[in-house]
Amino acid sequence: MSLVLRAAALALLAAIPATAVAQSAASIEARLRRAEDELAIQRIIVDYAARLDARDYKGYVALFTPDGEWSNRIGSHKGPEAIRKMLTTLGPEGATNTSNYHLVSNPRVEVNGDRATATSRYLFVMRGKDGSPRPALAGLYADELVRQSDGGWKIQRRVANDVMPTREEWAKIIAAERAGQ
């Protein structure tokens, strides 16, 4: 099939004037890559939540570049070791997690050559009293991404901005819950 295809493609290209080939092939390729890039980056945003919620720390760290940075209003964690260390506060690697998860939505991706920026929204849902899902934390992610030599994308910088509740309100809620237990 690939031979037939190649022959057909060649025939197709041969039939078009040279300049047109260069232009249309380049623009088709560039346009297709843009669509691929957008879908690949949307996927990273979803993979992030999947690996975080599954406590797949190795997979989570692998989403970042070697100089990748995770930060929020409180502080920042830069490089694979620092990011991994931050994660271990959530419990042991690979632990089964049925008590919470992240719903991620609203991806907005801007690709500029080999760099990209993306924003998205997260809703952290926790197990409530009768087991019902209870939205506990809502916020925005702002990402900077870089294309890798293998064509894939990695996060160079992710900023997590909590909107509801604020960090201070969240600390109070957690303290109240601990006191209640």
């Binding site: 809703l123 939205p135 506990a136 934390l137 809502a138 909107v163 509801m164 509740p165 604020t166 309100e169 969240w170 109070k172 809620i173």
Partner: peptide
């Protein structure tokens, strides 16, 4: 639409 609840929690 998610709004800020009394203790700051997101409330659908």
């Amino acid at each position: 639409l998610v709004k800020r609840g009394p203790d700051g929690s997101p409330v659908p």
